[in-house]
Amino acid sequence: MALNTPQITPTKKITVRAIGEELPRGDYQRCPQCDMLFSLPEINSHQSAYCPRCQAKIRDGRDWSLTRLAAMAFTMLLLMPFAWGEPLLHIWLLGIRIDANVMQGIWQMTKQGDAITGSMVFFCVIGAPLILVTSIAYLWFGNRLGMNLRPVLLMLERLKEWVMLDIYLVGIGVASIKVQDYAHIQAGVGLFSFVALVILTTVTLSHLNVEELWERFYPQRPATRRDEKLRVCLGCHFTGYPDQRGRCPRCHIPLRLRRRHSLQKCWAALLASIVLLLPANLLPISIIYLNGGRQEDTILSGIMSLASSNIAVAGIVFIASILVPFTKVIVMFTLLLSIHFKCQQGLRTRILLLRMVTWIGRWSMLDLFVISLTMSLINRDQILAFTMGPAAFYFGAAVILTILAVEWLDSRLLWDAHESGNARFDD
């Protein structure tokens, strides 16, 4: 018995066209964080690309023209004298008006014999932002004059995390709450300039795509075929072959399989920071003279006294001054041990922890910024005066060393310790 099946006739004509040209192939790229070699397709503007294995951002879609970056830099340069030299806060102490600005706080630190601690604050609040705007201006002028731009481009990517104007702005709020127990506070004209400078700096850093600047100024022929001998440069993120001198053909720094002496430098910085954190938390970090009496505060006791007036601000200072430094030390110690013992479990967790400490590390400088600003506000000789204690130097040095330890660690070593050939990683 035959089955009668109805015929289905399409209502619209289906047209099949042959592909007349070869589909576009992607360029081969190595991930600078996990060293995976993959094919990167062509990316349009405002599109980002991520590593298929570790999800690290390979290409950032946010990109401004150099002219727009230069305009932002010149605007920031105009704001800087007002943000640093004009009063941020006014207080009335014992019937006398006192003005506080950024430069005055750094000068008070240096004047009291601790120039190293003052230079830490100076670099993060004044030096690094000033280098940022002058570097962008150098790129703008240098591109037109045919100057060598490689050193500036190499420095810009590392400079971003040292620009800490946003953290200093939080420190202004913390210092205001600490001082309000002794005097009446009012915002100064410099505060508005400083807030504007923070906003412009944040926007500029978020749109400063150094890798795209490398592509514009020093374009290189990408690798179009897969080759395990391809290496990625950690300076400019170019994937290719080393030249005859073993250097990256684009930025001219040595092109090595792994960062040289990464573990040794990381261990040295980490152990030194552990040693410095002990006096930083045991010795007094601030000293207040009130009517001839002397009151010393460690980091913890200062947080407890701050909690009596504002528990939320005390929580912020606790996280930045105690929780973050010790968390960074514990995480980095764990990561280094996992590399030495070739741990194969929990790779995803370790990668996330490394990215976390990379982002939060700079916030530990908050305590030094609060001390710097408070020193310029309260300084009335023996009637009422505020000065920093010996722990300030140890704390600042420990924070900087932990930042350097994270920067010096080559994250690809975590993958080397893991089993080879993993296309995915999980716990």
Rank of each mutant, 00 (worst) to 15 (best):
K13F: 08
K13A: 11
V16S: 10
R17G: 13
E22P: 09
P24L: 10
Y28E: 13
R30P: 05
C31L: 00
C31Y: 00
P32W: 14
D35T: 05
E42W: 08
E42N: 09
I43A: 09
S45E: 10
Y50N: 15
R53H: 10
C54P: 00
D63E: 13
S65K: 12
L66T: 14
T67V: 14
L69P: 13
A70L: 15
A71N: 04
A71C: 10
M72N: 08
F82M: 09
G85Y: 06
L88C: 04
H90K: 11
M103N: 08
G105T: 04
I106T: 06
K111M: 02
G113L: 13
A115L: 02
T117K: 04
G118A: 13
I126F: 09
T134G: 13
T134D: 02
S135K: 01
I136C: 04
I136G: 06
A137L: 08
G142P: 01
E157V: 13
E157Q: 15
E161S: 13
W162V: 01
M164Y: 05
M164V: 03
M164K: 02
L165H: 14
D166G: 15
G171F: 00
G171N: 13
I172G: 07
S176C: 06
Y182W: 08
A183E: 01
Q186G: 10
G190S: 03
G190D: 02
L197A: 04
L200M: 11
T204P: 04
S206T: 14
L208Q: 10
V210P: 14
E211R: 13
E212W: 12
R216C: 09
Q220M: 05
R221I: 10
R226W: 10
R226D: 11
K229E: 09
L230D: 06
C233G: 00
H237S: 11
F238L: 05
F238V: 06
D243R: 04
R245W: 04
R250W: 03
C251W: 00
R256F: 03
A268I: 02
L277E: 02
L278E: 11
N281T: 08
I285D: 01
S286P: 01
L290S: 03
G292S: 08
G292H: 04
I303W: 09
I311M: 11
S321W: 00
V324Q: 07
V324E: 04
L335I: 09
L337W: 14
G346E: 14
L347P: 09
S364A: 00
I371M: 09
L373M: 08
L373W: 03
S376V: 14
S376A: 14
I378M: 03
I383P: 01
F395D: 01
F395V: 01
G396L: 01
L401A: 03
I403N: 04
A405I: 05
V406A: 07
E407W: 13
W408N: 03
L413D: 06
D416M: 04
D416S: 10
S420T: 10
N422T: 15
